[in-house]
Structures are given as C-alpha cells and as structure tokens.
Design a protein around this nucleic acid. Sequence first.
DNA 1: CTACAGGTCCGCCATC
DNA 2: TCGATGGCGGACCTGT
Length: 348
Amino acid sequence: MKTDTAQKEARSTKRKVVIVAMSGNMLLDFAGPADVFHQANKILAHKGFKDGYSVEIVSPIAGAPIHHATGLEIYCTHSIKDVKLPVDLLLIAGNDMQAMEAGRFADVYNWLRRINKQKVKRVASVCVGAFALARAGLLNGKKATTHWEYSEQLQHSFPLVKVDANAFFTRDGYIYTSGGVSSGIDLALGIVEEDFGRNIALLVARKLVFYLKRPGYQVQFGSLLPVYESANLAERLRSWLLEHLHEPLDVARMAAEVNMSTRNFSRVFIKQTGLSPAKFIEKLRVEVARKYLEETALSLEAIAEQCGLGGLVSMRRTFLRHLMITPSDYRQAFRSSLKDFQLDEYIS
DNA sequence: CTACAGGTCCGCCATC
DNA sequence: TCGATGGCGGACCTGT
C-alpha cells in the first residue's frame, strides 16, 4: 500500500508527453522526439532528478498499424481515443501531406478541436503536423514553422497565420511548431531545455551522438527567447543587426536605425524583449559565434572578429559568462561527439 | 589585481 | 488627465 502510493507519487512527477504518429513515411518524425525524451529520462535519473517524462506514442485510429515503406508495421498500444488528460506536451508528428490534403485525418482534427485546451500545457508539431493544428483551429493568430511550401490553396484549407521557414522551430505561446523531420529533434531538445535547462539538453544532444543541439527559434536569434513573442524592435532590426554584427553596435546606433531616441529605444526594447539592447546584442553575438564554431573551420580569432566579440580574450570571457564553456572547448565538444559517433556506431 | 575610460541603464522630470 | 517620448545625470558595468 505504501509502495503503491510512493510509486504513484513518483509517476505523478513525470511530465506526460503524448506523440500522435499520424503516418509512417518518416519514422524519425515521431521516433526522434520520443528518443530525446527517453534519453533525457536516463540522464535526469543519472543526475539524481526525480522527475522526467512519460512518453506515449498513439495512432490516429485504434488498432490500425502505421506502415513504413521498408515493410515495417508499427502497432501503437493506444490511439488518440485513449489519451487521458492532463497532458504536458501533445506533439503531432505528421509527414504525409498528400493524405492530409485528401482529408484522411479528420478524426485527428476533430479530436484536436474538441480537446480541453486548459488541460494541455503545450501543443507541438513536427513537419506538416502544423497543418493538422491549423485545420483544428489551434494556430489562429499564431506564428508557425513548417518546411512545406505554403501555397495559396493550402492557405485556404489550412489557415496558418504566419509561416517562418527560416527557423528550425518556433514557439508562440503554448504552440510549438518545427520544420522538416529532423527539426522535431531540435524541438524536443528545446522542450527539455525549457524544462531542465541547457546543460541537460546538451547532454541529451550529445547522447544522440553527433547531433549537437542547434539554436531553436529563429536560426540565428537562437535562445534569446521567451523574449521573442512580441519583440518587434528586435524583429525590425534582425537583418540589419546580423549584417553589422562585426561593427560596434551601441544603443545610439540601433536607435538611429529605427528613428528613435536612445532613451525611448532602450525603454521600448527592454519592455518588448526583457533584455536591454546591450545584453541582447551580446547574446546574439554569442549565438552567431556558436554557429560559426559548429559549422565552420574559421579560426577563433576570425570568429571573434566577425561576430564583434572583440578579440580572443574578450570572446572567451563572454562565452564563459553565457555558456560556462570556452570557445575552444565548445568546438572541441562538437568534434569529439563526431568522433564518439564513429567509434560507437561503426567500429564496435 | 587595480585604475581608468567609455558605455549602459535607469530614475526623474519636462514635454507632447 | 494620461500615456508615450525625450533629455539629463549619476550609478554601475565592462574592457583595456
């Protein structure tokens, strides 16, 4: 009796993740995020966390298998009808746009439409799953990401308000949408980061071997984000900032760019983003430098120069302050995880 | 580690 | 009267 209660309590601390696997064209669509949460559980347990995720993959139709072109048939033990609320994260993994356009998932749309929104903390989609959310009316007024070409015809049947095709994933309020299949992993890592912090998310990313977590919402505005929902000034300045990142960017210059006084620019900017202009620029510089470190072989000095992070010493200090890791260690981490991948997955 | 210079942030008050 | 905006000055922060 006692142990039962204890077990129940242990269970109740888990964050319930329900993944709707709408089709099996790409297993990664639902398997990717599921693996992220499972790996997160292992790491969290190892680190002494008592909570984590309970993950349930459900099918749209009870008893119907999900087919994969390689001949794999996947049977989910539960379907959407069995989902018990509340749910911490409801993730719609869709990848068969033809079937969606042919109206094959009406049951899912209806179910989504009727679901008690008060009892779902976060709703997410991978790939064209965003269109399921749109069809169910969950994206009204929201910004969304999907890699699918958003034709006029689609706009009629799947009313998304604003598609951001440049981001791996986008968050707008409690709605999270991601681009192509692998972005589902980015999204899941973003959720883990949101729940348990960046370090845990990075550990999960490394556990998934070579996959180093990419900055989420907006490719280069990276993790500047809870922030991002109403950041109009930051939006307006986005491309200008990225073009001039290697130059001195003081408040007066940014204010002049949008024809505002420095005082007012600063005040409005903080109100919209939660960050002062200087702090925002610094974070942006770090995000862009991270990308260079991950994706190029440029010298640290050249990266520091390009990103306006002063010199090597200055960049090192800034990295330590933001990421608690030096630029060279950061690059090393990326390289060594590639090495681990080859050793673990191929040689053994 | 310290001193210094320059930049940033923010409260306060005036103006629109 | 109220909210948005702008100027000023001082405390604080950061890089050299």
